[in-house]
Amino acid sequence: MTLRLRTHLLRPMGATLSLGLCLATAQASTDPLPSWHDGSSKAAIIAYVDTVTTETNPAFIPEADRIAVFDNDGTLWSEQPLYNQLAFAIDRIHQMAPEHPQWKQTQPFKAVLENDMATALKGGERALLDLVMATHAGISTSEFAALVQQWIDTATHPKTGRKYTQMVYQPMLELLDYLQAHGFTNYIVSGGGIDFMRPWSEAVYGLPPQQVIGSSLAVRYEVIDGVPTLMRDAEIHFIDDKATKPVAIHYHIGKRPVFAFGNSDGDRQMLQWTKASPYLSFAGLVHHTDDKREWAYDRHSTIGKLDKAMDQAKSDGWTLVDMKQEWRQIFPDID
């Protein structure tokens, strides 16, 4: 019901009540994090931002140093039942299979083609790398970006039927906007592929490609038919996870963050690095506790394991966001 309709209905009850409703509705409309329940996490975020952006406060941080970093998988969008980039690789295996008949007898490709992901994943990291190399390499960076964009535009999540870019967390989208409105520069620092995220990060998160940091394959320059081209090789260049996240931040940003959010042990060192800032800093973790609206997992999950980081959050005073209790809404509304 709109403010105009509400006040119209209440006019017969008196001007005082009508004015009170106007003020209450106006206050609600200025809530910077409307998808967050009023609670400890929301209060901590708002208090922190108010503190470090108030010039008269001793903890004031100049705008140039307001660097915020976010993990992607499980922090900004869902990561269950498989990492979304792995879902992309699986779809690519099925598309490319006619050109590779040997895959029918070669693991982990055989298992993927038979839709037996349990067997495919038994191969561990080596199997995942095989799938990524086969589907992500041997083409130019522009060709790969086009493939990712096409997939993002059409592929849907197996549980919800939503497009993967609709599996982002509405409360975190609000947080990105809130920080940006207060002079923070937001970055993604993810174990996911940098070239997988960059084609759609601006449309979904409002973050341009230069503010996305991730794992990467080796890329080489080549002139093909007179056209300068960057080709993606089947070789790992950088894995952006755990202790290498602060290294990636150093290489790409050149400043220590003052605000960091993750959701797993893979983000722990990034949050430690942020909390060691000489400025007043903030560290937060999304705790997946909602098995009805999303998924509930932490210490024993093979995806997004949250164990040591959760213990450190409790011992060091990091903000641990209980998704079930603290988020009014998980995913954005869609038409």
Rank of each mutant, 00 (worst) to 15 (best):
H94E: 14
A120E: 05
E125F: 15
F70N: 08
K42C: 07
Q102L: 10
T154F: 01
T54D: 06
H100T: 05
E55P: 03
A137W: 02
Q149P: 00
T135D: 02
A64W: 06
V112R: 08
G138P: 01
D73Q: 10
P62W: 00
Q105D: 15
Q85Y: 13
D71K: 06
T135L: 06
D38N: 14
Q95D: 15
V148R: 05
T51M: 02
H37C: 14
I61G: 00
P101T: 03
D130M: 15
K104H: 14
S40N: 12
L128K: 15
G39K: 07
F60G: 00
I90T: 08
W151A: 03
L129G: 13
E55L: 07
Q107N: 08
F70S: 10
L121K: 10
L82Q: 14
S140Q: 07
F109V: 07
T51G: 00
Q105W: 07
A127W: 09
L76R: 03
W151I: 03
A134T: 06
I46K: 09
G124T: 11
A68V: 05
L129Q: 14
L76P: 01
A89P: 00
W151R: 00
P101L: 01
L128R: 15
S40A: 15
S140G: 07
W151Q: 01
G123I: 09
D71Q: 03
R126M: 11
T56R: 08
A120F: 03
T141V: 14
F144K: 01
T75F: 02
A43C: 06
L131V: 02
G123Q: 10
P81A: 05
K104E: 13
P108H: 05
S140E: 06
L86G: 04
T119S: 12
D153T: 09
P108V: 05
I61S: 00
A137S: 15
A47K: 13
K110M: 11
A68S: 12
R92C: 08
R126T: 15
K104M: 10
T75A: 07
L113Q: 09
A155W: 04
A87N: 10
A155V: 04
V112I: 15
A97D: 09
T154I: 05
E125C: 07
L147F: 10
E114N: 14
